[in-house]
């Protein structure tokens, strides 16, 4: 009797000690990552990446898209609001909205995310979520109404990007990547075996036809977003947002929209993603189906003079 009781007590004390030690070590580890910029060059999940993809991530000289004459930046004006837009690819669409968020909004949103509990993220595969080394990140969904700044940022994006209907978008998905964090190359377009597997979003709003990523904090080394089929890596600054279409106008998957979150070697990356669904998107019925949606659909018609030979058909009222 005495012997059994002693062993139970010993076990309990050991468990408590182990828990305490774990939490302390984890805290120290997190501090080390954030405060001391300790280099951490290995990452789990390397097996998911090809050599070419990693080279495009890490070696800026591999990305020669900027050398093409049609890689341009423009400022369009919509309702007196100037918008700085950098076009990486016209078709399929890949664009960066520079300084879409003000420094105050960026800092406020970042702070809001850091107050939340972030969980290890899973990936969706045919409607089932599983934890995997395919992606290493912590995140949380944030309904826009949860804070003033998220309401403000979403409204601001809608006013500046009138071609997209952001009312048909999922909640913000806030993601934090530490050194070693990454998301192997994948599609955001959701594949299902059959309609019976559809979730609420899919039934009510259709597929994720576009992805808009707000960059709150870029990593110090690594952490870009690579688009292997386009041949470019997006390296956005804090305050920028970038967008691409995951689908063509007939809502079929855009095969050139595969992308990945590049491994992080130094610092920490924080982004907030919104996936835009198909329902009531004004561009979809207007753009030609059967080919990539052209980025000019996102430019309000006042700016079509930047390239007179292009006849923009913006779905935005003139």
């Amino acid at each position: 009797m005495i012997s059994v009781t002693f062993r139970q007590i010993l076990g309990l004390v050991s468990l408590l000690c182990a828990t305490w030690l774990y939490s302390q070590c984890r805290h120290i580890w997190l501090l080390a990552q954030d405060d001391f910029n300790e280099q951490f060059t290995n990452f789990l999940g390397e097996k998911w990446w090809s050599t070419d993809q990693l080279e495009l991530c890490d070696d800026e000289t591999k990305d020669t898209k900027w050398q093409k004459n049609d890689s341009i930046c423009i400022t369009y004006v919509y309702n007196m609001l100037p918008v700085d837009m950098e076009i990486i690819s016209w078709a399929p669409t890949l664009v960066i909205y520079r300084n879409l968020m003000s420094p105050r909004q960026t800092a406020s949103f970042l702070n809001f995310i850091e107050q939340r509990d972030l969980e290890i993220q899973k990936t969706s595969d045919f409607g089932t979520s599983i934890e995997t080394t395919h992606r290493r990140a912590n995140g949380s969904f944030i309904p826009p109404e949860d804070s003033n700044v998220t309401v403000e940022i979403k409204m601001q994006a809608q006013k500046r990007i009138p071609g997209l209907n952001l009312t048909v978008a999922e909640h913000f998905s806030a993601l934090s990547y530490l050194p070693g964090g990454h998301y192997a190359v994948h599609y955001d377009y959701l594949d299902y075996r059959s309609k019976q597997d559809y979730d609420w979003w899919m039934n009510k709003t259709g597929n994720r036809i576009g992805t808009l990523i707000f960059v709150l904090k870029p990593a110090e080394k690594g952490g870009g977003t690579v688009f292997p089929s386009i041949g470019s890596t997006v390296r956005a600054n804090a305050g920028d947002a970038f967008f691409w279409f995951n689908a063509q106008a007939d809502e079929e998957k855009e095969m050139l929209s595969n992308h990945g979150g590049c491994p992080i070697y130094e610092g920490r990356k924080v982004i907030a993603t919104i996936w835009i669904r198909a329902y009531n998107q004004r561009i979809l019925p207007m753009a030609p189906a059967g080919s990539s949606i052209h980025a000019s659909w996102l430019i309000p018609s006042l700016s079509n003079r930047f390239r007179p030979e292009m006849q923009t058909q913006s779905p935005v009222p003139n």
Binding site: W66, S71, I72, C73, T75, D84, E86, I96, R98, N99, R235
Partner: peptide, 11 residues
Amino acid sequence: YAPWCGHCKQL
């Protein structure tokens, strides 16, 4: 050029 333009920086 525009200072905010990534293509201009690469140039």
